[in-house]
C-alpha cells in the first residue's frame, strides 16, 4: 500500500485529559474503518485529519501536504471532504441551499457549474427530489445523507467521515456502503463507526483506538482472527456475559466454559476482546 496519508506521533490533550497519545498510522487508497468506544479519541483523530483541530504534538502528511502550514493546509482542504460527528444545519435553508452554501465555501464560484455539482451530490445520496425541501422538514436519516452530500462536493481525494451511518435505516446504510466502496476504489476514505458491521462489509482495513492509543491495525479478517479460540457455544447458560443464538444455544467470549464447543469468530468478537474489560467482562 502506497500511503496517501500518514500521521506520526500524534498527540492531543484537552486540559489534563490526553485524547490522543503518540498515534502513528498510515492510510492508503481504500476505505479504512476507525473503531473504538466513546472517548477513545476517534473524533479527535478525525478532526485533526480534517484540519479543524491542531495537534499538540506530532504531524500529519496528506498527499505530501503538511496541514500545519497555512498554504499547504488550504491546498489540502481543496482535496478534502469532511462529515463531522454532529453536522449542523441551517434549518431554514432548503437542502439545495445548504449544500450550495458549502460549495461556495469550497470556492465553487461559477453558478452553473456549482448548481450542477450540488445536483450531482444530492443525487448521489438519493436526495435529488428533496432539493427544495426545507432542512427542518427532512427526517434524521435524510439530514445525515444531506451532510454526507456536502462531503462529496468537488469529488475530494480524501474523505473523512465521523460516524456517517448514524441515523440511517438498513436500506440507506446499504446504499451508503455501496457509494463508499465505489469512492474507495480511487480515494482515501476514513470513517469512524460504532457499527462493526460497517467495518466487516466495507473496510479493507481497521484501526481500533482505545484510550487515545492504537490497539489494533489490520484487515477485518485479522481482527476476527484475534477471537479465534475465544468464542464458545454452550447449551446451558454459562457464567459471565452471553447471548442466545437463533438456534437456542448460548454464545460467550473468553475462557472456555464447561462443555462448550468453539464458535465462529467475527470482527465484533475480535473488537470486544480487544477492548477487554470495557467490552467484555473477562
Amino acid at each position: 500500500m502506497e500511503p496517501t496519508l500518514t500521521v506520526r506521533e500524534l498527540t492531543r490533550r484537552f486540559g489534563r485529559r490526553t485524547a490522543l497519545d503518540r498515534v502513528s498510522l498510515e492510510f492508503g487508497t481504500g476505505v479504512t474503518g476507525l473503531l473504538g468506544p466513546n472517548g477513545a479519541g476517534k473524533t479527535t483523530l478525525i478532526r485533526i485529519l480534517a484540519t479543524t483541530l491542531a495537534p499538540d504534538g506530532g504531524g500529519v502528511r496528506a498527499f505530501g501536504l503538511d496541514p500545519a502550514d497555512r498554504e499547504q493546509r488550504r491546498a489540502l482542504r481543496r482535496r478534502l471532504g469532511y462529515l463531522p460527528q454532529n453536522p449542523g444545519v441551517y434549518a431554514h435553508f432548503t437542502a439545495f441551499e445548504l449544500v450550495e452554501y458549502v460549495a461556495i465555501l469550497k470556492e465553487m464560484n461559477d453558478r452553473r457549474a456549482r448548481h450542477d455539482e450540488v445536483r450531482r451530490v444530492l443525487a448521489e445520496v438519493d436526495l435529488g427530489d428533496r432539493a427544495r425541501t426545507k432542512v427542518r422538514r427532512l427526517s434524521g436519516g435524510m439530514r445525515q445523507r444531506l451532510a454526507l452530500a456536502q462531503a462529496l462536493l468537488g469529488d475530494p481525494d480524501l474523505i473523512v467521515l465521523d460516524e456517517p451511518t448514524v441515523g440511517l435505516d438498513p436500506e440507506q446504510r446499504m446504499r451508503f456502503r455501496a457509494l463508499l466502496s465505489r469512492l474507495g476504489e480511487s480515494r482515501t476514505v476514513l470513517l469512524s463507526t460504532h457499527q462493526t458491521e460497517d467495518v466487516t462489509t466495507l473496510c479493507g482495513r481497521v484501526v481500533v483506538l482505545k484510550a487515545g492509543s492504537v490497539v489494533f491495525e489490520g484487515g477485518p479478517g485479522e481482527l476476527a482472527a484475534r477471537a479465534a479460540g475465544r468464542v464458545w457455544l454452550t447449551t446451558a447458560p454459562p457464567a459471565g456475559t452471553y447471548w442466545r443464538t437463533p438456534d437456542g444455544r448460548y454464545r460467550t467470549l473468553g475462557d472456555r466454559p464447561p462443555e462448550a464447543v468453539p464458535g465462529e469468530p467475527g470482527v465484533e468478537d475480535g473488537y470486544l476482546l480487544l477492548l477487554g474489560a470495557e467490552g467484555v467482562p473477562a
Binding site: R47, A50, T51, T52, R74, R77, R78, L80, Y82, P84, N86, P87, G88, V89, Y90, L98, Y101, V102, I104, L105, K106, E107, A147, Q150
Partner: peptide, 13 residues
C-alpha cells in the same frame, strides 16, 4: 454557526 465545523475544513478561510 451550526456549520462552523464544516466551514472550518473548507478552503475558504
Amino acid at each position: 454557526d451550526a456549520l462552523y465545523e464544516v466551514a472550518s475544513a473548507a478552503p475558504i478561510s
